[in-house]
Amino acid sequence: IGEIKRFIRDDGIIKVSRAYKDISYKAFTVKERMMAEQKTEPTLAEIANELNITPQELSTAMEAARSPESLYAQTDD
């Protein structure tokens, strides 16, 4: 496991900030599609289900994508 991890980290490092932005974008697309189909606003859980993640994760991802400056700022102290 250690070897593989080292390899992945040295090579294609994907930062969380990037992944969260992707999830948020996909969530937006799914939401628009569902609204067109159902004529009502889909719930967080419905969108999360479509993206195969938990509603808790989706909420967190959307949060991070909203304010990268503050969530990832390393300015304090």
């Binding site: 969380v16 900030s17 969260y20 967190t60 991070a64 969530l71 990832y72």
Partner: peptide, 11 residues
């Protein structure tokens, strides 16, 4: 969400 204040990787 707490850990994500550090710019860590997905892994």
């Amino acid at each position: 969400a707490f850990a994500a204040q550090v710019d860590l990787t997905i892994e």
